[in-house]
């Protein structure tokens, strides 16, 4: 069974909500990326989204754009990221890892080869923000044809409306609910109908519903805590790491307290 699906089942069993982070791979270097992955496993983060930097991140706000740009300048590429994932897996790290990446990175690598490599390296899922449901045929075929392939995490937005049942029909892992229109990292500026939107998604979804975009603290999601199954923090987490100089203790502290606050009754 897939690590994400295992983790989701375990959370459900314990009645816990998930805490998920996003980090751009390769900042400040690949060694540190590996360390932060392992630290988060200890701190109680449930899933890590590992951002594969792309030159044209059209779905991202300024913080992740800037992180992607710097990472590419430092020489980060998909081969080095695969290697880093393999290494943390060899060191016994079992935290679920989801690649967040743009479709051109996959196309360029070769869709089948990419899926095989993910499976072999120990990548558990993919989130592809520029690959809407209608364009997923090619990658789904590759995923179907590869045993133990990663899951394709589906994104829904506040304006998806009638599209939601179609998108979630065969969705696996968890649903990524985008909290606002537009791009990542617009500080807690959620869509005006965010509550009813989350309720609608929750009603349709057979898998856990996670909310992301613009979340900084557990209190940001307090109003919708009873609806969602977890929260995703990206831009804010990157900023926090930057400001602390990628300090392992600071990361541990942030992740640990977010996770426990999220689960306070």
């Amino acid at each position: 069974m897939n690590r994400i699906e295992n983790a989701m089942a375990a959370l459900k069993e314990k009645g816990e909500k998930a805490f998920i982070t996003y980090m751009t791979a390769g900042l400040p270097d690949m060694e540190k990326t590996k360390e932060i992955i392992k630290v988060q496993e200890e701190a109680g983060t449930d899933v890590i989204e590992l951002g594969v930097p792309f030159s044209d991140p059209a779905a991202d706000g300024p913080v992740i754009q800037d992180a992607s740009y710097r990472s590419i300048q430092l020489g980060t590429n998909i081969h080095k990221i695969f290697k880093a994932v393999e290494e943390v897996r060899n060191e016994g790290c079992e935290i679920p890892i989801v690649f967040m990446l743009y479709y051109n990175t996959i196309l360029h690598y070769g869709v089948d080869a990419f899926v095989k490599k993910c499976t072999q390296a120990g990548v558990d899922g993919m989130i592809i923000p520029d690959l809407p449901f209608e364009e997923q045929g090619e990658i789904k075929e590759a995923l179907r044809n590869t045993p133990d392939a990663p899951v394709l995490v589906q994104l829904v937005s506040p304006v998806s409306k009638k599209r939601v049942p179609m998108i979630l029909e065969d969705a696996r892992g968890f649903v990524y609910c985008v909290s606002s229109m537009g791009v990542t990292g617009q500080a807690a500026d959620f869509h005006k109908n965010v509550i009813s939107y989350l309720e609608e998604v929750k009603a349709v979804s057979k898998i856990p519903v996670m909310m992301g975009f613009g979340i900084r603290t557990a209190s940001d999601v307090e109003p919708m805590k009873d609806i969602i199954d977890g929260a995703i923090v990206g831009s804010h987490f990157i900023r926090l790491m930057e400001e602390s100089g990628y300090d392992a203790e600071a990361v541990k502290e942030y992740c640990g307290s977010f996770k426990s606050e999220l689960n306070q009754k």
Binding site: A58, A59, Y103, P129, D130, L131, P132, F133, E134, E135, L155, V156, S157, P158, V159, S160, K161, R163, I167, V178, M181, G182
Partner: peptide, 12 residues
């Protein structure tokens, strides 16, 4: 061709 955009633009 196609539509390689984020989900939030599909209805648009």
């Amino acid at each position: 061709g196609g539509q390689y955009v984020s989900e939030s633009l599909m209805n648009t």
